[in-house]
Design a protein around this nucleic acid. Structure first.
Lengths: 186, 186
DNA sequence: AGCGTGATGACATGCGATGTCATCACGTAG
DNA sequence: CTACGTGATGACATCGCATGTCATCACGCT
């Protein structure tokens, strides 16, 4: 084995979530997190830019968006690309993780600072989609509107999906939301 | 005159914007702002919850949204209420302030933390619209989608409006964005 | 065996943010 | 005219986040 136990980042994420649930985000200090993970404060900030970031590790979704849009068939309709992308993201990144996501949502809702960070992460997704469509030649206004709409559909549906008692698939709710949106604005 | 020069809040806002332009948001300390405004650090935090908030003083837009939605004609179509609300906000809160808003946008763009705060302010607007429609009996899914769409239309259009060299009215761009959205999702 | 590399620990520091109490001017009641 | 309440501000202290710097140690490569 190496000098240090492996998985420092994962241990920090786990310890942080535990402490946030136990005593709240604001009441949890970084030294408490690192103590539980068996590391030092300085190491925490080498893995995460700030205390909030420990809850928002992944950059996979914007990367998926960029890839899926750039690899779509040359003449494909943007809205078709969008819906297929939403299906892929819903099924690969959210489906089957409802309990974890509910815990996360509860923590995020408990702190305005975490809500801000959450919104910025969504904005990064939106920017990736927007830039992806622009690279395909979609005009900037439409690209921006499509990107914002995609993020709206995904996260409004995500909230409904986490609220429900049953187990309707997330993407079914996304499709329902899209139909509702079309009716509402049309 | 009173013991203290009046307009402490306005002086702090003015001094902060000046310093942010001169030397950047991160490089500006609260003591620098208060020194220029002739006040103390403690007084700054009595007027603003944190350093970012000095750029986001107004709560008028969510209040306008709540009022306009609740006072609309009983049977009015939600989308009609929305568009009329966008017209009112565009003309009363943005039109004629392009230079100020450009400076503000530049400052906000220069710092990720300010971008986060900006997104949260938009989210407050969205929540006000959503709750307003729910109070009218609109079903929750549609209320959330309408609210997010309204915020998207307003701020995507605002960006285009600040980018343009000419002087098309903001609301004209909002209408163009709505047409583009209808075509894109329909 | 020696060296480079990368992750971590140890130490120091600045600033944001907050709690507490004192100070002073104004308005109002008596 | 005096006394008191009220509200804004100043002065002081404190905590925790965030960051810079250097040392330490294991591993892999040569």
């Amino acid at each position: 084995m190496s000098r240090w136990r492996p998985g420092a980042r994962e241990r920090l994420e786990q310890a942080a979530i535990e402490l946030f649930v136990e005593q709240g985000f604001a009441a949890t200090t970084v030294p408490q997190i690192t103590a539980r993970a068996g590391l030092t404060t300085r190491t925490f900030f080498r893995h995460f830019a700030d205390k909030r970031e420990v809850l928002f590790g992944g950059e996979e979704i914007p990367a998926m968006a960029t890839r899926m849009i750039s690899e779509a068939a040359p003449g494909a309709d943007p809205m078709t690309i969008l819906v297929e992308g939403l299906r892929t993201v819903a099924e690969s990144r959210f489906e089957g993780r409802r309990d974890d996501l509910r815990v996360r949502r509860q923590i995020v809702r408990s702190d305005p600072g975490l809500r801000e960070r959450d919104l910025r992460k969504r904005d990064v997704v939106s920017a990736a989609i927007r830039d992806g469509f622009r690279a395909r030649g979609v005009d900037p206004l439409r690209a921006a509107l499509l990107a914002e709409t995609a993020v709206t559909l995904l996260f409004v549906s995500l909230d409904q999906w986490l609220d429900q008692d049953g187990d309707r698939p997330l993407f079914a709710i996304v499709e329902e939301a899209l139909a509702a949106l079309r009716q509402a604005v049309g």
